[in-house]
Design a protein around this nucleic acid. Structure first.
Lengths: 143, 143
DNA sequence: TTAAACTCCTTCGTATACGAACTATATAAA
DNA sequence: TTTATATAGTTCGTATACGAAGGAGTTTAA
């Protein structure tokens, strides 16, 4: 990731993309020792937040397309991170649970996430951090 | 894109990802009538900024991996948006130029970009806009 | 001058990301 | 009850995104 030129045409999508990619790339490196990708980590966070969510609920929680989630969940089952369980009352529904292997990493992953937050917001004052998060949520919710 | 829950675990990578994805999805829709993707539009902006850049220079300008750019450029040549030209002095280098078909859309695309910026920053005061952009560039450059 | 080192671009592998079409299941309506 | 509609997941197609390895060309160094 190189220095951003000063005089690019003004484009918010570009700025958001590159800020995201920078943060993503750094956190990705932090997660390599755990054998987890960024998104897979988010799936675990989602399930720890509310265990047994269906794929649809998880997708809503993570603001993620069901098509994307489908593949991620498949790889996470294969990796032993989660279990899928078909709902007996409604056979369309998949309830998803974290595995013990995942749960054992919960504290470590929380620390990694906090470390990532710190590095991303390094140099930001407390007020700026709050403001920045408000701006981002405004972009997400606004429209 | 649904409403963001209030009590997610604090994760900047998530916020940045979703803010980017929201902005990206909206701009993507704007670009459909032109037959261009978001990134392809950025390639044109890059070339209008400095015509004849090599793939490596363009990648640096757009903060993009050469492997990603390679495929994008191939599709853009196929679509008639750009021309690749091998440098005679150094046969490794590809100089890249926009096509007349692309140049004809320059004004329209500029307007679309400005419209996208407005929508993303809708509700932001002038000071907030400046601050937000500073925050994002800080994330990109900082580390 | 010839081998080593370097650079540019492509190709491959893997993981997002999402629209669209499809299957299976469940519910609503006629 | 049978049909219509709706919902949950999967699959397919296309486009990023990037690390790693490879091929071709250039430069440096012994």
């Amino acid at each position: 990731m190189t220095k951003l030129p000063d005089d690019v045409p003004d484009c918010m999508v570009f700025l958001l993309a590159k800020a995201y990619q920078k943060a993503h790339a750094d956190f990705k490196k932090q997660l390599i020792p755990y054998g987890l990708t960024n998104l897979q980590h988010l799936v675990l966070e989602g399930l720890w937040y509310k265990q047994g969510m269906t794929a649809a609920q998880l997708g809503k929680f993570l603001i993620l397309d069901k098509a994307t989630l489908s593949g991620v969940l498949e790889r996470m089952v294969k990796g032993g991170w989660i279990k899928k369980q078909i709902n007996k009352k409604d056979k369309r529904l998949l309830s998803i649970y974290t595995s013990p292997k995942a749960d054992n990493l919960k504290n470590d992953l929380t620390k990694e996430r906090q470390k990532a937050n710190q590095e991303i917001l390094q140099g930001f004052s407390i007020e700026e951090k709050i403001l920045f998060k408000r701006f981002l949520t405004d972009v997400i919710n606004g429209g």
